[in-house]
Design a binder for these strands. Structure first.
Lengths: 220, 220
DNA sequence: CTTATATTTAACTAAATGGTTAAACCAAAC
DNA sequence: GTTTGGTTTAACCATTTAGTTAAATATAAG
């Protein structure tokens, strides 16, 4: 009788999925407790099984939903660009924004990478592969036009995806690290900032002739 | 009676720690089962509690051991370098090699980042902070000497650490992704290759005057 | 041989956890 | 009012899991 019972917002299924995303992101698949998810959603555990299914189905639903949103965001922000350079900027920015929007994607993805995708349904893998493929396409196109240096595409797109995911997912641990070493405090940058700066840095190292881009990036 | 029982190598404690590192890396803290670790080490579960302690202590021991090894490797490979550019190459290479050497560090680190360090003892956090601090020092030094562009240090060192960890940790999932999209097969690059190429790419984007470095990086 | 100490084992416990079920509730249709 | 369908609830079950314990076995010392 503490304070729970908040059935206000949205349909039951939505509330369950939202709660599940939060818990799965912070606790991982094995760490998450079904009762805990139900409690946070303000529903009885049995409703969770009634509306969605067992733990694995619930997780699959969350991952798929989150990845779908991210993919939509990416392809939406990718229309206007023409040159490989513009496309590169657009795709990095789009990934950063999309990932930043679904707040729980970075943690979930990091864990899935770590476990080799142990809990990922096939459909979710397709979603991931789509993102990778988009980055890669832009990269190879630029290389074929002789605009980008002949860098390892695998390395590059893992660098981009890894940087974004890592940076966004590390928000909770950064304050703890900052307390120990004199690291910069939790500079709460927006995903857009991250995307823009990352694109600048990588592009600068990627272009054949040292294009001066939009000048040096502003510090912190 | 399948095939277990292999007590040959090393002391009991060592065997337990090795088995624990493997399981924790692939399953995560919550996913790992103490019985499973004991079985892989070829010992009775009670021995694990006798020699080391409970699950949390065991995990702490593994993380600390792994991080200590990595830190040693990093500072060892960092002596010869003088200029910021050399130092940068050295530190990136050292991190890649150190992380690559303790095969289970990438997975463990990715999970810890994702959970905000939920299972990390203070000492392990200090180990992490040390690595970050090393990268950061090199970076800032180069910037103060006017050799590096004024990029965001936080972004840069998370990019480096994130790229390396992400790339090394993703080895198990890459074949699965490759099956779906026409991604490059699991190009089994050595940590040294990764470190060298990454340093090239980032340095090229980092230097003020477009130094041509050691030429373009070889593809895959 | 006997005693003491370190190590290993099998059996057990208590709690947590995923999942189920049968009954209650509630709205609209008849 | 009662029937019908979807929805919600409380109580329950079976299994898994971390952790313990007391006995057994080896090993070395006196």
């Amino acid at each position: 009788m503490e304070d729970a019972e908040r059935k206000q917002t949205g349909g039951t299924t939505e509330r369950i999925l939202k709660a599940a995303a939060e818990i799965f992101a912070s606790e991982g698949y094995d760490g998450a407790r079904v009762d805990q998810i139900a409690e946070r959603a303000g529903v009885n555990k049995a409703m969770l099984y009634y509306h969605i299914g067992d733990k694995a189905e619930l997780y699959g639903e969350v991952v798929l939903d989150t990845l779908k949103r991210a993919n939509e965001g990416i392809s939406a922000n990718l229309q206007a660009a023409n040159t490989p350079e513009d496309k590169f900027r657009a795709v990095v920015l789009a990934v950063a924004q999309a990932v930043g929007q679904s707040r729980h994607l970075p943690q979930i993805m990091l864990r899935e990478i770590a476990s080799g995708g142990a809990n990922l349904p096939e459909s979710a893998l397709r979603g991931m592969a789509g993102v990778f493929s988009t980055i890669r396409t832009v990269l190879v196109e630029g290389q074929e036009q002789g605009i980008f240096r002949d860098v390892n595409p695998l390395l590059t797109h893992f660098m981009i995806a890894g940087s974004i995911l890592f940076l966004l997912a590390s928000a909770p641990i950064r304050p703890r690290l900052a307390k120990i070493e004199s690291l910069p405090e939790a500079t709460a940058e927006s995903p857009s900032d991250i995307g823009t700066q990352l694109a600048d840095l990588v592009l600068n190292g990627l272009m054949c002739k040292a294009a001066d881009g939009p000048g040096p990036v502003s510090p912190v």
